[in-house]
């Protein structure tokens, strides 16, 4: 440490460090506020949900507000059914698209495809819902029968919604593979597909899987578009076919909210649903983040 006592710059040094401190504190408060908000929301939700939280709520088979039955088990299963199905479709389309964009696509073609995929992100979910109502539902009704409003319609709308995220994160993961690995494989006489299969995909697989999980979390929390196409029977049931209507966690909150009595068991149960949804999505996100971190270190 240099002793600055008596030197001219001393005072100014002191002022600067005071300013530094102030800035540090402001930044810290900023960071803190976001944490506080998260905890406030969780605390408030927990408080409101508390009277409804018990095993009958989580594992109860029947949801029928008119009969004072608030079991959400079938709604949870329906939500997973709709979410996972949609993500399977997204993966089946999105991952090959990402591979194509990252490895096989000529630059000028990519310049057309990439912005259009990104444009998909900007479509408001309510507009997607309209599209579902006016195009997807009639299509399903006319071609496959049933009501049209169905699990299948939910899958299609949610797949469209999550596709751009899966494509761009997977593509980033593929592009993050060091070029030297690719060159090594090609110089050994590997074809482009062999290089993708044996070098790029193994290296990028954690990133791709994380993108799929993040999309799953997003899809399960999606409300508007899903509510518009999923059918929402008054009484919850586990759909028996993909043409069956379904009731998911988000749509239940949205639709029941318009007529719920405050306070009532129904009201507390809706908060309970919110809390359950929060934990499911948080669990998925944490898993995805953990996988990415582990993948990077590996």
């Amino acid at each position: 440490m240099v002793n600055l006592e008596g030197k001219g710059g001393m005072k100014r040094e002191g002022q600067r460090s005071l300013l530094e401190k102030a800035i540090e504190i402001i930044l810290f408060v900023g960071a803190l506020s976001s944490i506080i908000i998260v905890f406030l929301i969780i605390a408030y939700m927990s408080l409101e949900a508390y009277p409804a939280l018990n095993l009958d709520f989580l594992l109860g088979w029947f949801w029928d507000p008119k009969k004072e039955m608030f079991g959400i088990f079938q709604i949870i299963v329906s939500t997973l059914y709709v979410g996972v199905g949609a993500i399977l479709i997204t993966t089946a389309i999105g991952v090959p698209t990402a591979i194509f964009l990252a490895e096989f696509c000529p630059r000028n073609v990519r310049n057309v495809i990439k912005p259009s995929i990104e444009l998909l992100v900007g479509i408001p979910t309510i507009v997607l819902g309209f599209f579902g109502l006016m195009v997807v539902i009639p299509f399903i009704r006319d071609n496959f029968g049933g009501w049209g409003t169905s699990v299948l319609a939910g899958w299609m709308i949610l797949a469209i919604m999550s596709l751009p995220h899966v494509i761009s994160i997977s593509e980033d993961a593929l592009r993050a593979v060091p070029n030297s690995y690719k060159e090594a494989a090609l110089a050994l006489g590997a074809t482009r597909w062999q290089t993708v299969k044996k070098v790029l995909l193994p290296y990028a697989k954690t990133g791709i899987l994380a993108s799929v999980l993040l999309a799953l979390g997003r899809v399960m929390g999606e409300t508007m578009a899903v509510t518009m196409v999923i059918g929402n029977p008054r009484v919850a049931w586990i759909p028996t076919s993909i043409l069956d209507r379904a009731k998911v966690l988000t749509s239940t909150i949205l639709l029941d909210w318009s007529y719920v009595e405050i306070p009532s068991m129904h009201y507390h149960s809706l908060f309970g649903i919110g809390l359950v949804l929060f934990f499911i999505v948080a669990l998925i996100d944490v898993t995805a983040t953990y996988m990415v971190k582990r993948g990077v270190i590996k």
């Binding site: 060091p178 494989a185 110089a187």
Partner: peptide, 19 residues
């Protein structure tokens, strides 16, 4: 070219073993 590159090995500037 795949057979050509099999017949001609290449070693790069920086060691680049696969992970």
């Amino acid at each position: 070219v795949y057979e050509l590159r099999r017949k001609i090995g290449m070693v790069f500037q920086k060691p680049n073993p696969f992970p």
